[in-house]
Computed example of a mutant assay.
Amino acid sequence: MNQTLLSVEETSKVLKLLGDQTRLTIVGLIKDTECCVCELVEILDMSQPSISQHLRKLRDAGIVKEKRKGHWMFYALNEDHAAFDLISRILEHMPDQKEKIIALEQSGKRIVCE
C-alpha cells in the first residue's frame, strides 16, 4: 500500500468525496474488480447520469481510473493515488460489497456491456 502522508487539505477532500453514501458504495464495489457504468446503474438502482456524475467526481480527484472497452467505460480503484492507503483503511470498516457483484452475476447482468 502507498504510505504517502497526505496534507490536511488532501485528506479532507478525500473524506468529503467518500462522505457521500453512493460514492462510498461505488468505491467499495470497485475495490477488487472493475465495473461498467451500466453495472453500477443496475446494482445501485440509480439513473446512468447520476452514476456518471458520481464517477466523474471520483475520477477528477484521481480516486478511480477509467478504461474504455469498446463502447463501454469501466472503472476501478486507482491504486496509485496518494490516498489509496487511507481509502483502503476506510473500506475495512464497512461491509464488503462483493455480494452485490455476485448477485449481479447470478442475475445474468454482470456482462451486459460486452
Rank of each mutant, 00 (worst) to 15 (best):
N2S: 14
Q3Y: 14
T4W: 09
L6P: 06
L6C: 12
L6N: 12
V8Y: 14
S12N: 13
K13P: 00
K13C: 08
K13Q: 14
V14S: 04
V14H: 04
V14K: 06
V14R: 05
K16L: 15
K16E: 07
L18S: 07
G19H: 06
G19F: 03
G19C: 04
T22E: 09
R23E: 04
R23A: 09
L24Y: 07
T25G: 11
V27K: 11
G28Y: 14
L29R: 12
I30C: 12
I30A: 13
K31A: 15
K31G: 11
D32L: 14
D32M: 13
T33H: 15
E34P: 08
V37K: 15
V37P: 05
E39W: 03
V41G: 11
I43T: 12
I43L: 09
I43G: 11
L44Q: 12
D45N: 15
M46L: 14
S47T: 13
S47P: 01
Q48V: 06
S50L: 12
S52M: 13
S52F: 11
Q53M: 11
Q53N: 11
H54D: 12
L55K: 01
L55W: 06
L58F: 05
L58Y: 06
D60R: 13
D60Y: 10
A61F: 01
G62V: 02
G62E: 01
V64R: 09
K65A: 04
K65M: 08
K65Q: 06
E66I: 01
K67F: 07
R68D: 01
K69P: 00
G70K: 04
H71Y: 06
H71W: 04
H71N: 10
W72P: 00
W72M: 03
W72K: 14
F74E: 06
Y75W: 14
Y75P: 02
A76V: 04
A76L: 11
L77Y: 03
N78H: 07
E79I: 13
H81A: 03
H81R: 10
H81S: 07
A82Y: 04
A83D: 03
A83Q: 04
F84E: 03
L86G: 01
I87Q: 03
I87D: 01
I87N: 03
S88N: 11
R89P: 00
I90T: 02
L91S: 00
E92K: 08
E92T: 05
